[in-house]
């Protein structure tokens, strides 16, 4: 029972981090129609920058916020490179892959190739149903829920959020209404960067961050986002939880060697389901 509880809680926490990355994917895709494969790099920078700021003596919470802000700026730079010109969507996707590779090179030069970690939320671990759970997971849960709630409010209740949705829904009509679609796209990259940065800062204490962790993070974030067709933040969160739990249960009850493989197999199933759903919707 304790092992099950531990896998469950760890899976939920990791799933929420994937969901943060997935929400970044969804946000950027909804506004710009660009699939940003550099999303994982935002998390890597979030974790590594927090580490450097902590080493500089800056308090933990401040370090994490500063790192998220810095990654938001990186998001803006990526956005400018990806969407500022009249670049076809397919080329934009390739550019994001190129930016992810560039990010890996920069991260390796700046932080080296040794996995990096730091202490999470201070205080003793706590026990739930016989399982010892790190306090950092509690922070992941609270911060993620606050962020998801804020995103839901932004898009569901605010005029500004509706204008962002309008850009994704019909960019031409949005322009006719006076919405600056390009500026909204850059804002989506900023928010996507911040979400990724926070995800990385939250994940690094429980899973050491490496310069090349962006590949697996991007794949799992994308997998979670694709559950909602890259457009539904709610389904992306559900997808993140499914992939986080799958990974943990496979790793715990079977072998850590297969966790990513099973998660990717699940991605293929989701893609096939999505393709079938889209075909059926097209036939209606």
């Amino acid at each position: 029972m304790s092992a099950f509880t531990e896998y469950l809680i760890t899976g939920v926490a990791r799933g929420l981090v994937f969901a943060l990355l997935a929400t970044g994917f969804v946000l950027i895709y909804r506004v710009t129609r660009v699939v940003n494969f550099a999303q994982g790099a935002f998390a890597v920078f979030g974790g590594l920058l927090t580490f450097s700021l902590l080493r500089a003596g800056i308090p933990q919470g401040v370090s994490e916020v500063l790192a998220a802000l810095a990654v938001a700026v990186i998001g803006l730079i990526f956005g400018v490179i990806t969407i500022a010109g009249k670049i076809p969507l397919l080329s934009s996707l390739i550019i994001t892959i190129g930016l992810a590779m560039l990010s890996e090179a920069i991260a390796m030069l700046a932080w080296g190739s040794i996995p990096i970690s730091y202490s999470g939320l201070a205080g003793h671990d706590f026990v739930i149903l016989g399982a010892v759970v790190q306090r950092q997971y509690l922070l992941v849960l609270v911060v993620s829920l606050v962020l998801f709630g804020s995103m839901a409010l932004l898009f569901g209740r605010t005029y500004f959020g509706k204008a962002m949705t309008a850009c994704a829904s019909n960019a031409y009509a949005a322009k006719l209404s006076g919405i600056n679609v390009k500026r909204m796209g850059l804002l989506a990259f900023i928010l996507g960067g911040a979400l990724g940065g926070i995800g990385g800062a939250l994940l690094t204490p429980v899973e050491p961050m490496t310069y090349n962790a962006d590949v697996s993070l991007s794949i799992l974030g994308f997998a979670a986002a694709i559950v909602g067709g890259l457009t539904s933040p709610g389904l992306a969160v559900a997808g993140g939880l499914v992939f986080g739990l799958t990974e943990q249960f496979v790793s715990g009850y079977w072998s850590p060697s297969y966790d990513t493989a099973v998660a990717l197999a699940l991605l293929i199933v989701v893609l096939l389901w999505q393709a079938r759903r889209m075909r059926l919707e097209g036939l209606e």
Binding site: K162, S169, N170, A173, A174, L176, S177, G178
Partner: peptide
């Protein structure tokens, strides 16, 4: 515009309100 060009995911009221974006 030609073809109406609404924001299909948004409600009628949201579509109208976005007309006053400027």
């Amino acid at each position: 515009p030609e073809g109406r060009q609404l924001f299909p995911e948004l409600t009628v009221e949201d579509n109208l309100r976005l007309g006053a974006y400027r």
